[in-house]
Each structure stands twice: as structure tokens, then as C-alpha cells.
């Protein structure tokens, strides 16, 4: 039986990756953000899973608008890092785990999630920045094989928050039903509040972000009840991507232990958040 050992929620703002790639993590504009990552990174370095699943969205790099899948899952041996226009990030390609992917696809389709199965996929900053938040210096390879779970958060109608949470729960069941005894980390990416276009561009909602940060741990059902309109009102037109955190959270136990969290404004035009949860049952005293 496979087991989710931790869940990591993190923004995937491209400029976070760019700051790292250009050695600017100690610049005044960025230092507080990266300092806020440090405790999570230290804990994660001690808790390397056998495989990770990254819930993310693409930003006009791996797929275009000819077809927009609500949910996609990769089954490849390898995912190339996309060139987003000016050279690919200097990070390793992603090694996948097709066998585990097939198990997840079969379980989830049997549970009536209508996945799009990807055998070829170039992954962009939405995917690689969270890996860098987790592992700033991967060397030649990321800490373990990683499987992409793509979510449409760009083109309305996005999946509802409730559907995302339900997918997360089914993902948790699928993981637990895998016959191999492996450990799994799940990353939910995106957010926090931000809006890139329109007269409301630059909108940030720290109160809502604080609420989201708390409820994602203690009461995700409350978040799963939010409508798209409410999410866009509260978190901004691009902040709706926070629904991806609910997939990560759904895959975890009802009770989780918060290891660390932090909040920072601004990363580019975005509020950036990080939250790391231990999914292992608390040890009896």
C-alpha cells in the first residue's frame, strides 16, 4: 500500500523560479520569501518520498487553447522542461513513474473522473517552480520521480472547488490502493490571491489568503463549497487557481499536522503562500 506522507501547497509564480535561477534569492526584494521557505525545505530534505505528484496548470507552454482538458494525468517516463520563450529553466527534466501513473489513471477513471491521459507533455514553470521551492539545488535530478496532474484553471468553466476536492479524495484512495509499499508527496500549486489583467490588476486579499491558509488545514470542506464567482471575487481572476490546493488536501487524511507555513507579498503581481503538512498519524504519547 502506498502512503501519502506529506502535502505541500505552494505558489508557482514564474519570477520565484527566475529569482533562483539568477541567484537573486538574497536580494532585498526576495530574501524574506526565501527565508520563509527554509523551514519547509529543511523538513522536506529529511522526508524524501519515493514519488511525488504535482497538481498544477500549464500557462501556454505545454498545451494551447485548441483543446483544454479539465483534468490531465501524465503517464510518461520523462517530461521535458518547456522552453517558455527565452530558454528553458536550468533545471533537470522530470523523470516519471508510468507504472504508478497507470494505476492512478485506472483507479480514477473507475471512480468516474474523466481524465485526459498525457503520454507527451512539456512542463512549464507551473510545475518546475514548485519543485524548486521544494528542492532549491536538485543537481542532476529531482529527488524522486514526479507525476503531473494538470488542471484547467485558465478557461472558464474551471472544475468546481467541490470537484477538485472530490478528485483529491479519489486520488488518496487510488494511492492507498497501489500494491507497492511506497511513500508519496503531493504538491498543490498556484495562488494565492492575484489578478493580472483588468482595472483590478494587482488585487491582493490578505484576509482571504489568511482564511484560506487556515481552512485548508482545518476545514477544507468550507473552501470546497465556494463558487467560481466567489473565488474570483475573493482571490482575483487568477487566484482561482487555489482550487488546486484542494486536490492536494483531498488526498490527505482528515487530520494533518502543519509543519510550516508562510505568506509573502508581492512575488511579481501575486501573493505567495507556502504550507507544508505532515500526513502521518500523530504518534501516540
Amino acid at each position: 500500500m502506498a502512503e501519502v506522507i506529506w502535502g505541500l501547497a505552494t505558489s508557482h509564480v514564474p519570477s520565484i523560479g527566475a529569482a533562483m535561477d539568477r541567484g537573486k534569492a538574497d536580494d532585498p526584494a526576495w530574501k524574506a520569501l526565501f527565508d520563509g521557505y527554509a523551514p519547509a525545505r529543511a523538513w522536506l530534505a529529511e522526508h524524501r518520498p519515493d514519488v511525488a505528484i504535482v497538481v498544477y496548470n500549464d500557462h501556454a507552454n505545454g498545451i494551447d487553447l485548441d483543446f483544454v482538458p479539465t483534468f490531465g494525468l501524465g503517464t510518461a517516463e520523462r517530461y521535458e522542461v518547456a522552453d517558455e520563450g527565452f530558454g528553458r529553466r536550468p533545471v533537470p527534466d522530470v523523470v516519471g513513474d508510468p507504472e504508478f501513473s497507470f494505476h492512478l489513471v485506472e483507479s480514477l477513471v473507475d471512480e468516474e473522473f474523466d481524465l485526459t491521459v498525457f503520454q507527451e507533455l512539456h512542463v512549464d514553470h507551473g510545475f518546475t517552480v514548485p519543485l524548486s521551492v521544494w528542492t532549491p539545488d536538485p543537481g542532476d535530478s529531482w529527488p524522486c520521480p514526479v507525476i503531473p496532474l494538470l488542471v484547467n484553471v485558465i478557461q472558464y468553466p474551471q472544475p468546481t472547488a467541490a470537484r477538485c476536492f472530490a478528485l483529491g479524495k479519489a486520488l488518496g484512495r487510488a494511492i492507498r490502493s497501489y500494491p507497492k509499499d511506497i511513500t508519496v508527496g503531493v504538491l498543490g500549486t498556484g495562488g494565492m490571491s492575484h489578478q493580472l489583467a483588468g482595472a483590478r490588476a494587482g488585487f491582493i486579499n490578505p484576509d482571504f489568503d489568511a482564511l484560506w491558509m487556515e481552512k485548508i488545514e482545518t476545514d477544507p470542506d468550507a473552501l470546497a463549497g465556494m463558487s467560481r464567482e466567489e473565488l474570483i471575487r475573493q482571490a482575483g481572476s487568477e487566484g482561482i487557481e487555489l482550487i488546486m490546493w484542494l486536490i492536494m488536501r483531498g488526498a490527505m487524511n482528515e487530520q494533518v499536522t502543519r509543519i510550516h507555513s508562510d505568506y509573502f507579498v508581492p512575488a511579481s503581481n501575486t501573493a505567495a503562500g507556502i504550507a507544508l503538512f505532515d500526513n502521518r498519524l500523530p504518534q501516540r504519547a
Binding site: 468553466p157 489578478q195 483588468g198 483590478r200 474570483i232 481572476s237
Partner: peptide, 22 residues
Amino acid sequence: FDLPGTPVFDGQTSRRGLRMNK
């Protein structure tokens, strides 16, 4: 939605912009 200053990129918008986005 009634969200002033907040463009929502829906299916209709995406269709309108398809060639330009390509």
C-alpha cells in the same frame, strides 16, 4: 460576473481570441 474590472476568460472569449492567442 458582476465583478468590475475583472475580465473572465470564458469559452466565448477564448473563441474570439483563438487566432490571436495562437
